Computed example of a mutant assay.
Amino acid sequence: MGEIRIGTSGWVYPPWRGTFYPAGVTHKNELAYLSQRLGSVEINGSFYALQRPSSYQKWASQTPEDFVFAVKGSRFITHMKRLRDGDALLANFLASGLLALGPKLGPILWQLPPNFVFDPVLLAEFFGHLPRTTTRAAEIATQHDHRVDPGFTTTDAERPMRYALEIRHPSFITPQFTELLATHDIALVVADAAGKYPLIEEATSNFVYIRLHGHDELYVSGYTDDGLDMWAAKIRSWAADRDVFVYFDNDAKVMAPRDALALQARLGGCPGRTHRGAEDGPTPM
Rank of each mutant, 00 (worst) to 15 (best):
I6E: 00
G7P: 04
S9P: 10
G10K: 09
W11M: 08
Y13V: 14
P14Y: 08
W16G: 09
E30C: 02
A32C: 03
A32Q: 04
S35D: 01
L38P: 02
V41H: 08
E42Q: 07
I43V: 14
S46V: 07
A49V: 11
R52A: 03
P53F: 00
Y56H: 11
Q57W: 05
K58N: 11
W59L: 02
A60I: 02
A60R: 13
S61T: 00
Q62A: 02
T63H: 03
P64Q: 04
E65K: 13
V68D: 06
V68Q: 03
F69L: 05
A70G: 00
A70P: 01
V71W: 05
R75D: 11
F76Y: 15
I77A: 11
T78P: 06
H79C: 01
K81C: 14
L83C: 05
L83T: 10
D87E: 15
D87M: 09
D87H: 13
A91Q: 12
F93A: 14
G97W: 06
L101K: 01
G102P: 03
P103H: 08
L109N: 10
Q111I: 10
P114E: 10
P114V: 09
N115V: 04
F116G: 00
F116Y: 13
V117E: 12
L123T: 00
F126W: 14
L130I: 10
R132N: 08
T133F: 04
T135V: 12
